[in-house]
Nucleic acid binder design. Structure first.
Lengths: 156, 156
DNA sequence: GCAAGAATGTTGTCATTGACAACAATTGGG
DNA sequence: CCCAATTGTTGTCAATGACAACATTCTTGC
């Protein structure tokens, strides 16, 4: 499908000011996504020494805050699929950061815990995450960051 | 790696109030991502009749607002890779919504235009997008939507 | 003018993510 | 006790972002 015909003359090689984004200006989703991508990029960069990605980080924090809970509970809390969480946990378990134990109440489910290694790693990870959050504040301004956080927190 | 041992008793089958998210509470990226996912989900659902996804929609709007510009210019405006844009355009061209013409100034580049069909389709698409934006406002509140938009717009 | 380097569009490959379906094992309700 | 639901798992698919390579075509320095 290489339908390339001779072009008209209204091409506007014009000024270098950059193009407009048209009615995208009125779409919250567009700006939401752009900032979210920036934030995740910075997170991944900053956390590179620990090779931790946002999804893994969120799983570690939620396990830490809710020790012994099942995969289904964690998955629901983070709104990720059980299937996806299972695969994330395989990686974290291979790195010896978490452990699954058979639940005493329900033979189907696994209770999730941080290992000693996991807690040590998480301490370092949190330190880098803090640094990331500082960089974010520097980028958008501490004040704006707090405003955004307040506005967004109301939809867990 | 199925290291499942007998579990301790601190499992807390406890109340059904849902789990906490721990220190995730202080991460803007987490909430940013959650709302962004909600928005895109609703967009995709609402635009399903036209089978248009957010990325395609943004390309159509930027072409509309900058007729005759090159792929590189569009890609830079939307911060997507030239490679990705090329593949997006293949789809849009196959649907007869856009056309590429050889640039008069630069034999390497293609000038991008909406076709008649593309403009007609875009009219319908915009109508659905408007509906989506209304649903978003209903979800987070018109006031909050505007506040978020104002805060986010400052980082193109 | 010309050679070297940059830009443009394209294709290929890879990793991450989300979505859906199917499955075995287990639980719980009627 | 049987049947539906739950739990964790695996497989597959589509969308997205990233990176590399390539042929063609400017553009710049000399």
């Amino acid at each position: 499908m290489r339908t390339v015909v001779k072009a008209a003359l209204d091409e506007w090689p014009g000024p270098k000011e950059g193009l407009g984004i048209g009615q995208l200006e009125n779409h919250l989703g567009y700006f939401l996504r752009r900032l979210q991508i920036w934030v995740f990029q910075d997170f991944i960069q900053t956390l590179r020494p620990m090779k931790v990605r946002p999804a893994q980080y969120s799983v570690l924090l939620v396990i830490e805050a809710n020790r012994g809970r099942s995969q289904a509970a964690i998955a629901q809390t983070l709104s990720i699929e059980r299937a996806r969480l299972a695969r994330l946990l395989h990686v974290l378990e291979r790195r010896r950061w978490i452990s699954r134990r058979a639940s005493a109440n329900d033979a189907r489910s696994h209770s999730l815990y941080l290992t000693k290694d996991g807690e040590k790693a998480l301490a370092q990870i949190k330190s880098l995450a803090k640094q990331h959050e500082a960089q974010l504040a520097a980028f958008i301004g501490q004040r704006r960051r707090q405003q955004l956080l307040d506005l967004l927190r109301e939809f867990g």
